[in-house]
């Protein structure tokens, strides 16, 4: 029944199982606001897996592997499906990226990136538990510390 609420996608990408509260952040992170084709967004849909979920359907655009992995920064349980002619051609499980550039803010107020106009740059140092390290100040951050720029 849920599918009826959102128009089916002919060609494009579906990002599913997003926590509702990060759905718009994912939109911002993937810079979808200026996208000229149709984007359908829904939040607070019931989900057995995560309670309430969000979904983004982007028509006529296929996310790159890098973009898919960016989703994992905010939504590690998200799934990304590539749709062609109304059929799922590929279902991709998101994977946290090894390198994160200019998306995440360093949690260290004394980091140069929070004081001068510098592109932030993090490296993943451990996947489980997730730990990323700032390229500049070397501060390690866990998932709870991660906020977007």
């Amino acid at each position: 029944m849920q599918e009826l609420k959102i128009p089916a996608l002919r060609n494009g990408t579906v990002i599913d199982h997003l926590p509702s509260k990060v759905t718009f952040k994912v939109m911002r992170m993937l810079q979808l606001r200026d996208y000229e084709h149709t984007i359908t967004v829904a939040i607070n849909l019931p989900s057995i897996k995560i309670g309430k979920k969000g979904i983004i359907k982007i028509s006529d655009r296929y996310l790159t592997k890098e973009e898919v992995n960016k989703v994992a920064i905010l939504a590690p349980k998200a799934t990304v499906s590539i749709i062609k002619d109304y059929n799922i051609k590929e279902k991709i499980r998101v994977k946290f990226p090894d390198i994160i550039e200019n998306i995440v803010k360093c949690s260290n107020p004394k980091c140069i990136t929070n004081n001068e106009d510098v592109t932030t740059h993090f490296k993943m140092v451990s996947e489980k538990p997730l730990m990323i390290r700032c390229h500049y100040c070397e501060r390690s951050m866990s998932r709870e510390d991660i906020t977007l720029k």
């Binding site: 140069i112 500049y136 070397e138």
Partner: peptide
Amino acid sequence: RHPLEGAARLAAEASSVPVINAGDGANQ
């Protein structure tokens, strides 16, 4: 030497001559 952490890394990226970090805040 700089009070902000990561300032030495940034200086090295800007510089074409070698940079030695003599202390960047509480970092290195």
